[in-house]
Amino acid sequence: MSRYLRIGARFARNGLVRELSFRTNFVVTVLSEVMWLGMMLIFVEIIFANTKNVRGWDNHQYLFLLGTHFVISSIFETFFFGNLQRLSELIRTGGLDFVLLKPASPQFLLSFERVDYSSCANALLGVSLCVYAAQKLGVHIGALNVALFVLLVLSGVATLYALMFIFSTSSVWFIRQTSAAHFWFYLTSCAKYPAEIYQPLARGVLWFALTFVIPVLIVANLPANAMVRQGQFHPWLVGYALFAAAVLVILSSVIFRWALRWYRSASS
């Protein structure tokens, strides 16, 4: 265990060195995220200029959801996005050999090697949006509900991590895959909206599938509900979120080890 902590610390340090050697990149990345958030806020403004609530979410609750989504995706992008994007590429080019030869868990090495600090700053944007929305809603911010929020956010990150890891691993079967970046875009474009909007579609089948089979809808919705829509939140959902995250992470590891049997180490 302590060995993995040491490796993790080394990865974190390497990331910092890389970040400090491209300082303008840091500024531009933050700037681009501010822009993305700005555009999303305009979109939310346009929606709520035309309606008072979206399936039970009012303007500020929706903003809180958006902030939560921003926090979760920033944490994910800081630690995992670059790594998982690289995984498909390593499988395709045969570069995975070098990881498999190392005396440590390949899934650990593949998942944590690169830390992208510039995405980390965006989590602050998300937190600011959440605090702003919570204050507008008059929600009391205390130790207990913040702890619950953090727990659900982390389990959301773990859920997304496992889904993306499984997707990237499947490159073993579908060579030269649609990039992980696209899959990430589709996942988040689904997850950042209120779960309730999916309920009327296809008699709720879609909502069911996105909540219980590929549970992207619980990722940002649950922490937001726990904080600003307590009427819609039940304590057993915490259990479900943790259970789903744990099952998916274990599944990702099982699938990865199984997929390695098909890995052909193709390279030129």
Binding site: I47, N50, T51, K52, N53, V54, R55, Y193, P194, E196, I197, Y198, P200, L201
Partner: peptide
């Protein structure tokens, strides 16, 4: 489609 059907339903 899901989002806009919600928006049109609300207003």
């Amino acid at each position: 489609i899901a989002l806009w059907s919600a928006v049109y339903a609300g207003g």
